[in-house]
Design a protein around this nucleic acid. Structure first.
Lengths: 226, 226
DNA sequence: AGATTTTTTCAGCTGTTTCTCAGCTTTCAA
DNA sequence: TTGAAAGCTGAGAAACAGCTGAAAAAATCT
């Protein structure tokens, strides 16, 4: 899957790039509208992530020109908080979805996946690890047939873990996926949230083996080692 | 592949230089911003490693001026621990990645490789020596089908050995690759860690031939002599 | 606004890891 | 055969990673 990012803030562009590459996407980045438009017209991408505010040619204009040139690649528009009008304009110009800054990487990934229509989990949108299940549509979490209530952050963390079952995720990876890209989060915060999750999904189920594992020096893992 | 290092601390600059040269990079070093900028503008590099704190012209400014002059060479920014704001500034000025000091050489090498889009070693690569395997994505280490638990340093050492199977690595090379550049490590420490690894990957597998070999007077080697 | 929940940080505690040291063993050459 | 150099290893001090209760800060609800 090939992705093009057109975004002038290098920090954001590169953090998205790195994140998507870890998810096995091939990513190109352009830091202004002109270069981006050029790449989008001449290369073949599966998704284009497009910032609204751009030097040389702005995002709405890039969008318009692509559609005019019969490029129908799905476009995910990035907008800052105040640019609601531009957002509407963007969608009118032919964007397929939008995301308000600042966003968590996991959210972006979900949109990109939606746009590439690549259902990661074949059975609808239910992630499963042993007897734990998470429905990404209804946000329902269950262990066995017992329902579990989670806060928003707890849920985001659990979803990220469950999308990578059996794989060790470092605290840094977790911070980058679950929190906004401009959040300044201590590693200890991750430890605390892991604690909260354990209190809800492992501690009350004494008979069953714990699902969340600490791998000292490396990170955390949900489910059995693959 | 040509690399330019702009770093005023000679000790660091030279240790990076030596390390990269061993990996077959051609390396130039500049010890202040002015000289560095000059070289970067007039020569052709594949990556620039740029310290933030520099005499004459600081790193952020070097970065900004390069981008302004249409030099798009990937830049890896080096920052000290406390300089988080500067880091953000650096990325906004056009750096592509950053590394917090002090770092292990192996980490720097990984970033440089990522920036030069060299062999994709980041996603799911499995290193193998005889019946020993190491998965760099999941950090899983196995001999035969038996899983082996390693500490972080043990893992880093084993990874370095396994990236150079059949090759003799001196204690100095090992120290430079596995430990932070400012760590002051005795050669004996390497002997101790080799001992730890043997306890875990050779001793418990009595029937099979040992994989870690001492080459008296030279260093250590994993796997058969090539 | 005040109350409640959620998010985040902080400080103290625990067990583990890291690293050095000192004494021991092996190797090798004179 | 013996002495020096190189390497090995058990023991222990210091540093660190991770867990947790509690409290501060921020967001959300009524």
């Amino acid at each position: 899957m090939r992705v093009l990012i057109i975004e002038d803030e290098h920090k954001i562009a590169n953090s998205i790039k790195r994140g998507l590459e870890q998810e096995a996407y091939a990513v190109d980045a352009a830091y202004d509208g002109e270069t981006g438009l050029d790449l989008a017209l001449n290369e073949d991408y599966d998704v284009i992530i497009l910032d609204l505010m751009l030097p040389k040619i702005d995002g709405v204009e890039v969008c318009r020109r692509l559609r005019k040139n019969q490029v129908h690649t799905p476009i995910l528009m990035l907008t800052a908080k105040g640019q609601l009008n531009d957002k509407v304009e963007g969608l009118n110009a032919g964007a397929d979805d939008y995301l308000v800054k600042p966003f968590a990487f996991a959210e972006l990934l979900a949109r990109v996946r939606a746009l590439t229509r690549r259902p990661r989990n074949s059975i609808g949108s239910i992630l499963t690890v042993e007897d734990l299940s998470l429905n990404t549509l209804t946000f329902e979490v269950k262990r066995g047939d017992k329902s579990i209530e989670l806060s928003k952050k707890e849920y985001a963390l659990l979803e990220y873990l469950m999308r990578n079952p059996g794989r060790i995720l470092t605290k840094d990876q977790i911070i980058n996926h679950v929190w906004d890209y401009d959040a300044d989060i201590l590693p200890n915060t991750v430890e605390v949230y892991i604690g909260y999750l354990r209190n809800k999904i492992d501690k009350p189920f004494k008979g069953r083996p714990p699902l969340i594992h600490t791998v000292r020096g490396f990170g955390y893992r949900i489910g059995r080692h693959r």
